[in-house]
């Protein structure tokens, strides 16, 4: 599903170049649930942004579901993001003047799906994350955990091939974090490929594979025995 080879990325900081990713080789198969770990500044978010076509690598190749991701113009990049990817952010990134339902329906708007069908599909995903009764509420009327559920529903709505989550539990307390991870595990059980960036060991243990980044290279990549989140709630 994801295939990257010798990926490099550096940022310009003043006159110097800050080399953040120094040759990443990494692949993810369909149905995997992978966590990316590492200390702050190790390049986790940078890697995830490149995988999410929100940013572009300087060197190396990236194939998403067999499609080469290279030198895309904004139109095509937008199209791929819409078709292939679902994002979940630490800070939720919901549109605050839209209801939960409208937020979930938004990716479908950009797929050109009619309003009626959009709302039906959005509603079914809100049900899936257990928020059907909250459909008409605005984000500021929801708790952090509820907001993240809406964000997950939104990420799922466009039927992406891969879900990308950057610190999706970073703004939540432990109990809520585990509830969210339980949801993530269930979605993965249905076959969805999911990548989560985290620096929390317990969250990482709830995935099936942990990739350790340090100073821009992968120092460790191992399968783990998945801890079911529901048992810890």
């Amino acid at each position: 599903m994801i295939e990257i080879k010798d990926l490099h990325k550096s940022y310009k900081v003043g006159k110097n170049a800050l080399h953040v990713l120094k040759g990443i080789n990494f692949s993810v198969k369909e149905g995997e649930l992978v966590s990316i770990m590492g200390s702050s500044g190790s390049g986790k978010s940078t890697l995830l942004n490149i995988l999410g076509i929100l940013d572009e690598a300087d060197e190396g190749t990236y194939h998403l579901d067999g499609v080469p991701i290279k030198n895309l113009n904004e139109r095509i990049a937008a199209n791929y993001r819409n078709k292939f990817l679902g994002f979940i952010f630490q800070s939720f990134n919901l549109i605050n003047y839209k209801s939960a339902l409208d937020n979930v329906a938004l990716p479908l708007y950009y797929q050109g799906i009619s309003r009626g069908e959009r709302n039906d599909r959005a509603m079914s995903y809100l049900e899936k994350v257990g928020l059907a009764e909250w459909a008409t509420h605005k984000p500021n009327e929801l708790s952090g955990g509820q907001k993240q559920r809406v964000a997950i529903a939104r990420a799922l709505a466009s039927h992406p091939k891969v879900l990308l989550a950057d610190e999706l539990t970073g703004a939540l307390d432990t109990k809520t974090s585990y509830e969210i991870m339980d949801l993530v595990q269930k979605i993965n059980d249905e076959g969805k490929t999911i990548l989560v960036v985290t620096h929390e060991e317990d969250i990482a243990q709830m995935t099936k594979r942990i990739v350790h980044l340090k100073d821009g290279v992968i120092i460790n990549d191992e399968k783990v025995e998945q801890v079911r989140a529901i048992e810890n709630v």
Binding site: G52, L54, E74, R75, A78, N79, R81, N82, K83, F87, N93, L94, I95, L106, P107, Y110, Q111, R154, S158
Partner: peptide
């Protein structure tokens, strides 16, 4: 920010 969100969700320029 909203524009960024929309673009991440697949809005074309």
């Amino acid at each position: 920010k909203e524009i960024g969100i929309r673009k991440a969700l697949g809005a074309k320029p």
